[in-house]
Design a protein around this nucleic acid. Sequence first.
DNA 1: CAACTTTATGAACCCATTATGAACGGAGAG
DNA 2: CTCTCCGTTCATAATGGGTTCATAAAGTTG
Lengths: 224, 224
Amino acid sequence: MINILVVEDNDKLRQLIGTVLTKHGYNPVVAVDGQHALELLDTHYIDLIISDIMMPNVDGYELIQRLREAGYNTPVLMVTAKESFKDKQRGYLAGTDDYMVKPIDVNEMILRVGALLRRAQIANERRLVIGEVILDSDSITVYRGEKSLLLPQKEFYLLYKLLSYPNKIFTRQQLMDEIWGMDSETDARTVDVHINRLRERFKDCPEFEIVTVRGLGYKAVKRC
Amino acid sequence: MINILVVEDNDKLRQLIGTVLTKHGYNPVVAVDGQHALELLDTHYIDLIISDIMMPNVDGYELIQRLREAGYNTPVLMVTAKESFKDKQRGYLAGTDDYMVKPIDVNEMILRVGALLRRAQIANERRLVIGEVILDSDSITVYRGEKSLLLPQKEFYLLYKLLSYPNKIFTRQQLMDEIWGMDSETDARTVDVHINRLRERFKDCPEFEIVTVRGLGYKAVKRC
DNA sequence: CAACTTTATGAACCCATTATGAACGGAGAG
DNA sequence: CTCTCCGTTCATAATGGGTTCATAAAGTTG
């Protein structure tokens, strides 16, 4: 499911956009202004943002600026009033990926959303999706529905590695080599401890499970 | 002499890989893209393939796919751009044996090449298919339709050995030598116990059966 | 059919491997 | 500087694969 954050203070327009997105198989997450949007970004994994420029509190420009500062490279589709061309320029400079002028043609919107997502796919492949669970290696964060969980580095990469190749058995040494580095002096048993912690964190997770393969190592199995 | 096919469109990188391989006693055969690689495969005996994914004409994915379709089970070491994690997944599913992330660490490459060759040498076929049943020796797992069953090592290799040569009679000693190791002190009767457990596990399996040959040993017979 | 040999099977045991809790040290944030 | 959090190590508990053993069953031979 692709999550699209819709930032728009006009209730009717926001609802319209949401409906259209839903109809095309996207999952809209709505915010009434930039401030609200930034809060949602902390807890939701967002694939794309559709944002108005003129908004109370934090406006579209500031939203993008703060977004990029925080390290997000989420593509943004700006919505701007027809008459203000200056805005468009400014919006581009601030890191917008595309823009639309009001009044919005919903078909055009869907086309642009599709194009942006396609383009982003190439540059934004650092995430892993397993059912409701999303691993985002840019922020070493795991998103699970509403919740987001910032993992310690080692734990994150360990999980990421295992889930990148479901069912593949990794020996401790392989995991050490790939996550700790080839020349690491660390005891391979350290892996066990991290596996243990991951299991504790995700013990109630229906999507996957880390399985011990006695004498060999570990593997992740999906259960969905 | 071990022949390694290097498929890489970047001239400098291809040359670098070739040089390193030569230095380590391998014989590199180079191709600039997948199309070229497929032609070379027809005329050269190739032990292992190192292939980029992004290439003109036939890309890495298609190369592997067509390779497998043509019946080659040559091990493939994929080279993928660092940022593209999806690629790794796709590449893996398509029949890759291992992967490396650019920029390439040549020492790591040599290690992986060695590991792949070793693995391939011992068991050239990593997957055994008997009707609905698939034995995957990478994960010591037996797949039966939707279900998968992770076996204990000894049991798996025992079954794998027997099914690799259907109808061939193995003496206990042969099985001990090949699975337990030549110098194992273990009582040959241990084989019986493992056979017994395998029979219990697969008693309702229509594909094969383990038959006792009194005074000699055991053999697997297919029934499909 | 009786005596003997070989194999099947269930159970118990052993021990290497893994799980787990806790403690320590160090780096980075506040 | 202190405090927190992460990574690591260590000690101990628990697990389960592998083996052995005892007994039952099946097959072979005279």
